[in-house]
Design a protein around this nucleic acid. Sequence first.
RNA 1: GGCCACGUGGCGGAGUGGUGACGCAGCGGACUGCAAAUCCGUGAACCCCGGUUCAAUUCCGGGCGUGGCCUCCA
Length: 446
Amino acid sequence: MTIRLYNTLTRAKDVFTPIDPTNVRMYVCGPTVYDFAHIGNARPAIVFDVLFRLLRYSYGPDHVTYVRNITDIDDKINARAAERAAKDGRNVPILQVLREITEATYGVYREDVTALNCLQPTYMPRATEHVTQMIAMTQNLIVAGYAYAAEGHVLFRVKKKADYGKLARRSLDDMLAGARIDVAPYKEDPMDFVLWKPSTPDQPGWDSPWGYGRPGWHLECSAMIEATMGETIDIHGGGIDLVFPHHENEIAQSEGAHHGHPLANVWMHNGFLNVEGEKMSKSLGNFVTINELLKDWPGEVLRFNMLRTHYRQPMDWTVAGMSESWKTLEKWYGVTEPLANPKVGAAFLEALSDDLNTPAAIAELHKAGDDDLAGGLGLLGFSNVQLNLAAKKQVDEAAIATAIEARKAARARKDFKESDRIRDDLLAQGIVLKDGPAGTTWEIKR
RNA sequence: GGCCACGUGGCGGAGUGGUGACGCAGCGGACUGCAAAUCCGUGAACCCCGGUUCAAUUCCGGGCGUGGCCUCCA
């Protein structure tokens, strides 16, 4: 099956041809671990997990390397670390405080994505563990003339990179025209960006040839890709907001350090997500964390809801949509359980291979027979586990079974008043009865 | 201000130069003691104005609207 992927670099859907089919390499920008992940963060996690699964299906599970990094060097994290250090009054190194914070936040993130049925990436490198590589790359860039040191900073010399702006399709002139930034005096050019910057003694930092400091944000991805997968990889993914400057700068750094060899052949970007028609923001009070959501909704419902919209399309997250998703999954799980002879249907696979067209793939599942349905759900990362299994554990199953038996007896003697009373009684407890040809089953009311 | 997306039936959401996906809701029917669940059937759309074309929702231009980036951001 030919896989076609939309490439931000070419602005076209291109046929995907891996550099090495026995080792397909993909990197996705992961979370900055300063706070709980929100619903928007779930989108790339889920979308690229589906791509990971498709690639594993196509090239073999052992022939795909998926790297999703952990950004644990960041000014917001630094601020929290400083806050906590001051509050605790403990005399511990600031890097240790930072690690405690990011470890806790990342732990929650891992639980979140596991609940969303995302496979674990092959590697999950942390920025703090690759500072040596970042320093080495910076030195290479200086030697090659792509970077210069000034006042404790190291800056990337944007003018030296003739094709700078090729991903975002912007010229330096365009960017300068719209620039609203204060230009630091030590910059040769206003668009030059930071590779290394100084830290004060109380801030997280590392010793370097340019003094005690820390790397700029973009550098970590370049260094960690090099460390885990080499100079050129097949696919680099992330949110569309990362196109500029983050990914543009990654390209500049990596190509500068690697004699112009491309960083990634295909650049993929997922669209943004709104909540109930509004931009998600803390001030609007509609900031939804994954963790919070998982208290009310099974992770698979969240996952399915996300895949009902094509990944490049802007999407609106709504409670109504979640309910619809739950309903569909419940129906499907009813027919695919037990999962008998799953197989992946041709039409389904074709839709999925067409730039991850999950809405079209899901439409095929609506038309498919049970085996194709089960196989398609499996490939999309649905486990065919009863959705309200967890909820069921919290109710008295024996009592419900007894009530169902009593109702059955009442119905047998045509005492419908009594049988309806039992049904209403259970409903009041949140239990919905379903009479089928094979008898009565029940589920938790939504 | 510069760059870039998007605008499809009541709702969600694919796609296509001509035969109008798919799901939810609605409506009709089957099933049921009655419901629910399930099954069968069914109506309904392509932001506005021009242009190209035998033919445009689909291509081109303009407008309006929404959103993103240009500064931390999935």
